[in-house]
Write a protein that binds this DNA or RNA. Structure first.
Lengths: 239, 239
DNA sequence: CGGACAATTGAACCTTCTCAACCAGAGTGG
DNA sequence: CCACTCTGGTTGAGAAGGTTCAATTGTCCG
């Protein structure tokens, strides 16, 4: 648990996440706060980034959920990665002039330009770590899709969600909000909605997971993690 | 096709790849050449990087194939990404002190420290683009595993290999070398070796692919690409 | 109350896995 | 020069996990 400094009081989920990735200087936090003032809203299903279109510049997701997505010519859809509060969008070195995939809002979303890190080494470090963590989650996704059963995929994914939302301070004792339909869950895990439904039922039956009304409750996250042999991709350093 | 400059004559596959990602200055090319002099060998099955161990610093693969790998507690194995000549290993910003996954040599491999890019902006740019392209291939892998049939996975993967090796100048008219066993192919594509075998047979039957003696020949790559609706993740700019 | 969207369930089907056996080629040692 | 062994490729038959199609229920909202 983090010792509370004077600036920690009213941290938004996004800045809380970044400040946990790397200890942020006060000016860096201030820059973040300033950027958040310029936040814009986006309705669900709108695209934050469109495949092949120019990237406007790195942005940071303040609230709501989004996901990278690809659609095959025949309509099959795959969500590639989840974008949660505090995650960066469109930041890949500054190499790509063009978005490699689309990013679509799954809920209403607020998003702000990511403050430039040129004058803030601590912020730059947070960005770089965020980028590395992002990559680690892509690898985790590959492992899930390649070698896990439906039950394992679902359990592992929910544990990942918990781990990531925890970092942004969005997990409480009785669980966390997860605004995903069973259909979008299927698009994440490479399964059909029908099978998601049945898998969810069996996890509920085993007492591993309760997913109701857009909220997830896990009786024993640590137990479930060891049960499926999961190692977290990132844990915040003790400070 | 690239106009040949005086330094282009004897480019190694690795420097050819990087120079195609971004136009490299002569000093940058020289730095690469110098680094290649310090190459070390590694036998097949040795690990270039071990999960959880400290990263020695960014390195570049000069020859041979390697792959990122994760193994589940019960022995299921998944290759996460392929590492081909000219690819960087252990370069993720400079954020990670510790390797997130293991990288194992699939063949005998030569590898050299990646020359620092501090004094070479063009080299830095090549690194950043390489990083972005690497990410794009992870996304492609997620799409394959999540939503493609065995045939599509295999065809798409082979096309990706071709695309990547082409960049390093390792593709000739009659195909390219691919030192993969059917078992490792299964570990890449999330399938069993048995099913790889059958899928390979059906692709051969359809005339899409000939995989024999560690060498892949594709009668009509472009045709196969449109047949499965594939868009290349990266194509070198015309210069 | 009607309409839309999401969740739920059943039954048949299909892709891929599992288990098992057999074959081919390369290297090794007698 | 030939058994021996090891690794990788090939094939068959049955089983399992997940999909497809289709129908039903629940729920939110105007």
């Amino acid at each position: 648990v983090r010792a509370l400094g004077h600036a920690t009081r009213a941290l938004s989920p996004a800045s809380l996440r970044l400040s946990r990735l790397a200890a942020l200087s006060d000016p860096a936090l201030e820059a973040l706060r300033a950027a958040e003032a310029e936040a814009t809203f986006l309705r669900a299903r709108r695209e934050l980034l469109t495949h092949g279109m120019a990237i406007t510049g790195p942005r940071i997701l303040l609230s709501g959920w989004a996901a990278g997505v690809t659609v095959l010519p025949d309509g099959r859809r795959q969500f590639l990665n989840m974008v949660l509060p505090g995650d960066l969008v469109g930041y890949h070195g500054h190499a790509d002039p063009v978005a490699p995939v689309s990013v679509v809002a799954l809920t209403e979303v607020t998003i702000a330009p990511a403050p430039p890190s040129d004058d803030h080494p601590t912020l730059r470090e947070a960005y770089e770590i965020s980028h590395a963590v992002d990559r680690a989650y892509l690898l985790a996704q590959i492992l899930r899709l390649g070698r896990m059963t439906a039950q394992e995929r679902l359990a592992d994914f929910v544990l990942e969600l918990r781990e990531r939302l925890e970092l942004a301070g969005l997990v409480t004792a009785d669980g966390f909000d997860a605004p995903l339909t069973q259909e979008s869950l299927g698009d994440v895990l490479g399964l059909t909605p029908v099978h998601i439904n049945r898998t969810l039922r069996s996890l509920r039956f085993d007492g591993d997971l309760i997913w109701k009304g857009g909220r997830i409750t896990m009786p024993d996250p640590a137990g479930l993690a060891t049960k499926i042999g999961r190692v977290p991709a990132f844990t915040a350093p003790d400070r």
